[in-house]
Amino acid sequence: MTLSVNDLSYTYNRGLPTECCALHDVSFELSGGCVLSVLGHTGSGKSTLAQHLNALITAQSGSVAADGIDPAGGADARRSVRRRVGLVFQYPEQQIFADSVAEEISFAPKNWGADEEEIKRNVAWAAQAVSLPPELFPLHPHSLSGGQKRKTAIASVISAKPSYIVLDEPTAGLDCVSAREFEELISGFAGKGIGIVHITHDIELALRVSTSILILEDGRGVFYGTPGECAEFLCSVPVKGLVLPEVLELSKRLRSRGVIDTLEWTPEGLAGRLEEKWQMRTR
């Protein structure tokens, strides 16, 4: 059971003077319980890719398949793809519309025709998964704080029990404490067997949470591999719009000067490596 994308291409305003290629021959494969981060500059085609996964956009060439179902197969196929793949938009304001948090979270299971019991169960499960306390259920979503709004948005997607979730920049605009919480949320979902596509331009975050990483540059997949390979790639090839994080940059410089022999991208990792080296020297 996988979410797979093969040679996907998409061009906006085809045939018009404003024609613009958003995706060009992009491929990847994601299984349940794994986290795929999609890295790229603004306008690299990340959001277009996200909308393909949820069948909001139909492939112009190439294909998308969720558990073997291709959304090109008509309205029914599109609906079953949406059922399997949940999409959380970048800004919760874009998707929140109900009068209360509970109603918002129950929107998706209702649409998929769940019965009353099941809806209740799903809502409780989803709220708990994002640690949204039940006291908030009767409140109006727009009266919540930024972090709580985002949790509501995520809960309202996972309440349909999708096999895969696509998160579009889930930490943009959040303060550090809330951003940290989301990181834990992502690994929590993966632990529950959900496949996650995580769209971001934060290299450090991607390196920390992912099982695999796809880098897009002007709509082309220029890299696809593990975080370790990704760190190597970023250190050797400049990618448009991506700035090498400082810890990785320092790690790269120290490696090239022979101080350490592996790349590290977390502060704890690099500090640990340096400490090891220091102890070896002083011994």
Binding site: Q51, N54, L56, A75, R79, R82, R83, G86, L87, F89, Q94, Q95, F97, F107, A108, N111, W112, S156, V157, A160
Partner: peptide
């Protein structure tokens, strides 16, 4: 169009 997409992605039916 953003809101329609957000709701469509959660199974709202605008087509049938």
């Amino acid at each position: 169009s953003r809101i329609i997409k957000a709701q469509e992605s959660r199974g709202a039916d605008f087509e049938s």
